[in-house]
Design a protein around this nucleic acid. Sequence first.
DNA 1: AAACAGTGCGCG
DNA 2: AAAGCGCGCACTGTTT
Length: 465
Amino acid sequence: MKTITNPAYKLMHEGSIALAQVEANGIRIDTKYLDIAIRRTSNKIKHLSENLTHYKIYKRWKKKYGAKTNLGSHEQLAHILFTVMDYPCESFTKKEHKPAADEANLKSTKLKFVAEYLELEKLKKARSTYLRGILRETTDGYMHPNFPLHFVQSYRGSSRNPNFQNMPVRNPKIAKLVRQAFIPRENHHILEIDFKGAEICCSACYHEDPKMIKYIENPRLDMHRDLAGEIYLLKKKQISKMIRFASKSFFVFAEFYGDWYKNCAKSLWEGIDELNLKTTDGVPLKKHLRDNGISELGACDVDKQPEVGTFEAHLKRVEYAFWNKRFRVYNQWKKDWWEAYQEKGYFETLTGFTIAGNLDRKQAVNYPIQGSAFHWLLWSLIKLQKEMNRRKMKSLIIGQIHDSIVGDIHKSEIDEYLEIVREIIYEKIRKHWKWIIVPLTVEVEMAPLGKSWYEKEEVKIWTKN
DNA sequence: AAACAGTGCGCG
DNA sequence: AAAGCGCGCACTGTTT
């Protein structure tokens, strides 16, 4: 067993050098804004905390814990809600088997106190991990996060001090609060390029499922939309963007990573209310499902078969068709790959890394895909930076987020930069790695001149849809 | 005071 | 048969 091939070694070596330059470049931070944002957020936190103390629940909390009462203690709150006040508890912690204090479990009480508490917690997270974290790591207006390559089991990269790869983006308010701090250099744009469906494309290079390849090759096909149709019993034109999003994140990706229908049914069902899903003709999704004979989620009990007519039972069939009809070849690959790993105790990725150790089934089939998809990005970043250096460009690469590259690009170099990117991703990478059997595409997002990372918007240049 | 385990949450 | 992959960071509560 060879643990690493020469090309794999070279990739890590050159990758480390390229990322060292990225670290040295650093990211410009608006420290004045950060100071104001921290102050403003602190005021909100103070106000919200004070407000919580007027609730009856807080009085019970105080009675139970006295001087030890701590609004920051999830454990205390969960104990008050689920043990003292006896609200039905849907989940428990893994090791200690105490009532869980995560957002979903707390929210299930539907208490106003809890809603305000969660809002407070979001702000606290934004302030401590992000606003203060960024400020702490910034000197002379620049922050230099690390991008190590030698910590992750799957041979992905990571980021630390601070982690540049988990800056808020999904919650618009928190995203704005934090990402406004990231600004370009004078006369530059923040510009991000993002591999489209990197892990899905990469998986196809392993399993070569013809249906998956078709989805990737034909821009008029859309697997998330198709699955949304099956999951929610909709016609193509009824599927809104948000419905597609729910199908993609709560079913398709979850299934690819190894989740199953009972979990997916829950998150899909809860997602309907949380995302306020409606068909494009304005019909609330739960009403639509009711009209089609599905009016309940079902128990989703691990030990029980789903009840006929429930959403859970429906999703069981969708899952079956997903793996045994639609992506049958992928399914078979997973089985074969797992068998081979059990036989040998290791496997080799398409990029030349051997992965050994005690892996479970999901890890064994996910690692090669996750690792190799990142290696596409890393290889591209190395090429891109070398070319930028050769041309002595003013533009800089300032970060990497698994399948995207964040650049601080001079206004006079945008076209040039994008042309280099295009050549690498649309041409060179497939010449370098002959096993890439699907076309690779990237999306481009850019903020207006001088504007923050928060203000990035998609730039349509190479994609036709 | 420092270290540790456990939990939760931000991202891909 | 089992039942979501990979990270980093902050915080609580306990132990050293």
